[in-house]
Each structure stands twice: as C-alpha cells, then as structure tokens.
C-alpha cells in the first residue's frame, strides 16, 4: 500500500496496493472511520467528499490474518466557507477607543479550521462618518481586531470577509454618558420647577428617553432625592422652594451643576 502523504479534505484520491486477493482497507482517525473492500493489486479509490475531516489517520489494509498500515494526513480545504465571527459588544457607547472587538475563525466547507495564514478584512461602517477598515492575517486560523466606535449614534455594520466569504454583525452605537449636565430652577407657587438643559453626550448625541437623572435638594441638614427619567431630552421635577436650599443633579457617574435657591446661582 502506497499512501499519499497528505490529502486535502474532501478531495478524491487513490491508494495503490500490491499483492492479490480480497482485502479490506480501513482509514481510521479521531474524526472519521471508513472501510472499503479492495482487490489487492488494484488501486483503491476514495471518492470526493468521502474523507473530509482534517487530521491524522491510520490507513490499514487487512488481508486474512495479515495487515499493513501507514499514516495519512488530511489537511483542510484551502478555501473558506464559513467565518465564525464573534463581535462584541452588541451595544456600545459612541466615541469609545477600541470599544468594539471582533474575532474570526475561518473554516472550510467541512468545518475544518483553516490554519494556513490568510487575510481577513474587517470593516465597521455606520450611518454617519467614514468607515473604518483593516486587514489582519490569521494565525492558527484566527484573526482579531479592535475598532473605535463612531462619534454618532446609530446602527453600524461590522463586516468580516475572507476569501470572498463575508459575515456581518450589527453593532448598536448608543450615546455615551451625559456631558455638561446643567439644571436651572423657576419658582412655581410654593415649589421650584427644576429642569435640565437638553441632555447630550460629549459628541452631541441626545441621551435616550428613560435615562435616569437624579435631583438632590439639601436644606437645613435634610436631604430630598428624586430619580426622574429623561423625557424628550430633558428631565424636570417640582421640589420644595426653601430659601437657602442647594439643589444638585447627576446621572449615573456624571455630576452636573449645583444651584442655591434664594442665594443666587
């Protein structure tokens, strides 16, 4: 039996044999096991698609009580068929340096990891601004990258491409933390109407409705706190109008300004 040293996954090949009489050929590896009845002296044909899992195989010809064997290596097909593309996070604040990452494992049509180095292109394109693109060569079948999120909110397409196969993930780029959070107050009878200015992130994206803004009033050693969701870009609340009270505002980890009622701003 003369075995080819290597065989490409899924390709046809033949194994020349010597001798005469009936025998059985086994090709056995961790991922596949085949058996073919053979006539010694004739080559054994393995059809395309019969041996398709990459790996090390032991080929054995058994004729009666005797057998002979050899190693056979099956390598992945060279052309990508599937990209396993892990892109995270699915939701990311705008303007974040290296905020989006992607890793691609490249597989052939038989789900063998293609370990031969090959270029993988990554492209992130959003609803506004220029797209970001780069090409990374795989190492051991994997390529990865990190990309900044855009400065404007919206859905971005994150595309990985190798050998004509493309896979897309959608990344939701959302506003970052509020920036320059400020409040003002107007008297309304016995109360104060406290209201934020338009709440935006540092890139000017409106902070989504429902984001909580916390108002805190301190007066005479007592503290009153109210959590208010943003509605139509602002948050507002009525608070007791104590002369000399201080009122401050915050949202998440971001602190805004503080005003003193009755003593000026």
């Amino acid at each position: 039996m003369t075995l080819p040293q290597t065989v490409t996954a899924g390709s046809a090949f033949s194994v020349p044999t010597s001798g005469s009489g009936p025998a059985v050929l086994y090709i056995v590896g961790p991922d596949q096991a085949l058996r073919r009845d053979v006539q010694l002296g004739n080559p054994v044909s393995i059809a395309a698609g019969d041996l398709y899992n990459a790996g090390e195989y032991l080929a054995i010809i058994v004729a009666g009580s005797s057998s002979s064997s050899g190693e056979l290596e099956v390598t992945p097909a060279p052309h990508p068929d599937t990209l396993s593309f892990l892109a995270t996070p699915s939701r990311v604040p705008v303007g974040l340096h290296n905020g989006i990452n992607g890793a691609v494992y490249v597989f052939d049509a038989y789900h063998n990891l293609i370990v031969t180095p090959m270029p993988v292109s990554f492209e992130l394109s959003g609803s506004s601004g220029p797209s970001q693109a780069r090409t990374i060569t795989t190492s051991h079948g994997v390529a990865w990258t990190e990309i900044d999120s855009a400065s404007k909110q919206g859905s971005a397409k994150f595309i990985a491409q190798a050998g004509g196969i493309a896979t897309t993930r959608v990344i939701d780029e959302v506003p970052g933390d509020p920036c320059g959070l400020t409040i003002s107050a107007q008297p309304d009878g016995a109360k104060l109407r406290v209201q934020t200015a338009l709440v935006r992130d540092c890139s000017g994206n409106p902070i989504p409705d429902g984001t909580i803004v916390t108002f805190t009033e301190n007066y005479n050693g007592a503290q009153t706190t109210a959590d208010v969701p943003i509605k139509k870009d602002i948050a507002q609340i009525d608070m007791p109008a104590y002369s000399g009270a201080t009122i401050s505002v915050a949202s998440g980890v971001v602190a805004g300004n503080e005003i003193r009622w009755g003593g000026g701003r």
Binding site: L86, T88, P89, N101, A103, Y105, H140, G141, V142, W144
Partner: peptide
C-alpha cells in the same frame, strides 16, 4: 495558549 479572544469567550 496562543489566543484569548477580547470578549473572553474563546481560548486557542
């Protein structure tokens, strides 16, 4: 070990 994905979801 030759690869740890940035999201921590695979190790090669």
């Amino acid at each position: 070990i030759v690869f740890y994905s940035p999201d921590g979801l695979s190790i090669q």
